[in-house]
């Protein structure tokens, strides 16, 4: 029995929002399945429209307001994520992409994610796989194999429920595998981090680097051992 932290990010802006509805259905399924398997799940929901006022500062000056900071703290501690957006003009909503563009590159490494989108027409169906997947690949998150997409007609189709069930099961299995935590414990140093990244937690400074040697009066030039013709070689 493990306690899991699930964070739901929804970019729906109407109230009620079909995007939020899709996210909630997936979240409910994840919670039920996890419970059946003996786990408890705590849920934090990040409604991105509540971050709208802080978005200009975050985008233009990297100044994060209190709501952004709370959302980032939650994502940093998350064991799994449900990320849902409406599709506008053949793409994920600007609010959704802007939010993820503000995050540190290493905040979501290895974390399992259900990707979900809603739209007014089925012609947008590939936005999840062709656009959102690329964004999360860049962030080195781990989207589950089944993507969720719901256009108007899907809400009356039982097939949507089947896909939600599949995606939720995939997410629970990935969460149980402990992959994200293992990556963090075993291989964190192999990823690129910047000072204060990963939501401000990545503060170790590597003193044993070429740049640090140069900073302390060393040289970038190759050492004698690297060059067979170097006269310094004994």
């Amino acid at each position: 029995m493990t306690d899991y932290r699930l964070v739901v990010v929804s970019a729906g802006v109407s109230d009620p929002s079909s995007t939020r509805l899709l996210a909630d259905r997936a979240t409910q399924r994840v919670t039920d399945l996890a419970r059946e398997r003996g786990h408890a799940v705590s849920i934090t929901t990040v409604d991105l429209r509540e971050l709208l006022q802080e978005l200009p500062a975050a985008l233009s000056s990297q100044l994060l307001g209190p709501r952004f900071t709370r959302a980032i703290d939650a994502l940093g501690a998350a064991d799994a994520i449900v990320a849902a957006t409406p599709v506008y003009k053949a793409g994920a909503s600007g609010l959704f992409t802007s939010f993820f563009q503000v995050l540190d590159n290493d905040l979501l490494i290895g974390k399992p994610v259900i990707l979900a989108a809603t739209a007014g027409t089925a012609r947008h169906a590939l936005v999840v796989d062709e656009e959102m997947r690329a964004l999360f690949a860049y962030l080195r998150a781990l989207p589950v194999p089944t993507s969720l997409f719901a256009s108007t007609e899907d809400w009356t189709d039982t097939a949507l429920g089947t896909r939600i069930d599949r995606a939720a099961r995939e997410l629970v299995l990935l969460m149980e595998s402990g992959f994200a935590r293992a990556v963090r414990d075993d291989a964190w140093g192999a990823y690129q981090h910047t000072y204060g990244s990963a939501g401000g937690t990545e503060l170790d400074i590597d003193l044993d680097s070429d740049m640090m040697r140069l900073a302390t009066g060393g040289s970038l030039r190759t050492s004698a051992e690297d060059d067979p013709f170097d006269p310094r070689r004994a």
Binding site: P56, A57, S60, S61, L63, G65
Partner: peptide, 13 residues
């Protein structure tokens, strides 16, 4: 800063 945060936000942050 133009068109980014408000002056009050900038003062507090």
């Amino acid at each position: 800063y133009g068109n980014g945060p408000t002056m009050e936000d900038f003062e507090s942050m």
